[in-house]
Design a protein around this nucleic acid. Sequence first.
DNA 1: ATTGACATCCAAAACGTTTTGGTTTATACT
DNA 2: AGTATAAACCAAAACGTTTTGGATGTCAAT
Lengths: 340, 340
Amino acid sequence: MAVTLKDLARELGISITTVSRGLAGYDDVAEETQLRIKDTAERLGYQPNLTARRLQKQQTGILGFIMPTFGPRFSDPFFSEFIAGIGNEAANHDFDLLVSTHPPDSDGERKTYQRAVTRAWVDGLIVVRTREEDARIQLLCQHNFPFVAFGRTDDEYDFPFVDEDSEAGMRALVQHFIDLGHRHIAFISPPSGLMFGRYRLKGFQDTMADNGLPVPSGWIVEGDMTQRGGAELTEQILALTPRPTAILAGNDLMALGVMNRLQQHGFTVGEDIAVGGFDDIPLVEHTHPPLTTIHQPIYEIGRRTCDMLIDIINGRSPTNPHVLLTPTLVVRASSGQPIA
Amino acid sequence: MAVTLKDLARELGISITTVSRGLAGYDDVAEETQLRIKDTAERLGYQPNLTARRLQKQQTGILGFIMPTFGPRFSDPFFSEFIAGIGNEAANHDFDLLVSTHPPDSDGERKTYQRAVTRAWVDGLIVVRTREEDARIQLLCQHNFPFVAFGRTDDEYDFPFVDEDSEAGMRALVQHFIDLGHRHIAFISPPSGLMFGRYRLKGFQDTMADNGLPVPSGWIVEGDMTQRGGAELTEQILALTPRPTAILAGNDLMALGVMNRLQQHGFTVGEDIAVGGFDDIPLVEHTHPPLTTIHQPIYEIGRRTCDMLIDIINGRSPTNPHVLLTPTLVVRASSGQPIA
DNA sequence: ATTGACATCCAAAACGTTTTGGTTTATACT
DNA sequence: AGTATAAACCAAAACGTTTTGGATGTCAAT
């Protein structure tokens, strides 16, 4: 079927070795021979077999990305943009990207990470949505397996990561609302256990405290990162007394849910109640009203994470193995005008 | 580093062959020996090297998916859900999923498909967003390479596909608006060249014609599938006379853009102007107002596409190589009450 | 004692590449 | 003439697995 080195060697009447080395451009092959080899390779449409090369080189040329997904009907714009980022960067360096989906902390996820470290499955992994006491990262560190995380963790391992400073982002967001005059602010936090959720929560709590604003119990509720979740929790929040003048969400998807539920109740977002999100997914620039949020350059983060991983795989230690990006506040209409 | 068959053989004092066959459970290995083999394999943590196995079996165990993406900042909920569908199904059959992103009809895309057919890169491909005279499909057919498409094409090749009946879906959508009393309906079509866009456009045109409704020039505009595009084209549409009472978009993302731009202009969607979309991405159930649209079971489509591909790779011809699913109309508030 | 059947094992080849450690031939230097 | 030196080539091993086609030994039937 496919043309192999053996075929070329037979056609040319020389050894497989010489063909291989000729194609690779080694200088122990006469220039003229090299030309002949490359010519016939071209003519016969020779393409090296990747599997054979991998076996010999003991490298797969593949990067792995295991998406932590909830449920089957799953749709998070974060992932398509992130995949585009790592995928393009990987392609630039002649790596392929293997994608696998598993619910967080599931058996399937554990098995897949296990597979990565014990079999020659991929050359390196990209880990996202880091968790508290993240078993994935512990495993990878113990096996000394090449990986880069998007996010930090709270255990003692030292590993390369790219992260955005969620705490700083959240501080900026909260301060913006406080500066607008809001005193009664509710927060829908990301699910506990996720590191970035922890930072965002801390950013919220600290900023409120710094401004001398109490946060009674019930004013922080835990969401599930989905639009539906945001919408449902809005009901709880509307029942609080006094009614919050602003609702912040731990991510944009939940903020969208909040906005829509508020609108269903007849509130005008940005006037009656202000709303803020986090992530700046492309969607929220064009909602009604456009959402005030914290911009995270997801594509760029994907790109840099991937870049760092490839450095590690190739034995170059990255110049800076702990990248912390500062996200920026994007003020749009959903936060409204100064009040009271 | 990793434990190999050779290590096991040495440890057990038997041949590599017997170890291999013992692990595979062949009955020309004594039951007692099998147990000993499996025991030590377990004990030493043996895991077969995937690359070596692939080389021998002449199969990669990998499925390829090349996402047609526009621009770097790319985020389409369609893809995350679709990937989840094919990824999970692939995992169920012990296949991995390789994902690669390239702008449609780009050099990179061509090279990647070329690579798939000439080198042992993946065992099969999943093709989405089929185009008119689709060069990818022509290539794959000519090389007899295993693939399944989500979508049909207009050339003469016979190939396996899963598709939803966009034309029927669009007919249902348009008829719904006509039944509500709308006579002046504008349509933002998907970009020309995409097959599903063609079907959706045809569904629109035919249904209007069937109902004796003229569609003056300017009432069909070509969009780019993005929210931003939908928003911008809304301006053009609002300038039409008479002003449309309904605006339909070729996909949900554009419909969202339309809704938001209309709201910016002070219109109440579903009362002043009705809006309809297509796809039923998870997002639009929770917008304000919720969007009337055509439901496409993307996860399920991904699952079935993948399933069919695996059948083909394994030499089983699929029971039905041309699956056409009928999408369903989902009526929500954005289409409003009957008018006039 | 020979034959056949069966159970159990294994050496070698194969998959397609790259690398190692040469050999051969021609040329230049003493 | 003999000896380095360099240029050009190649056989064999290696990567780790599976498959092919026996080989060996045991036992029962003839």
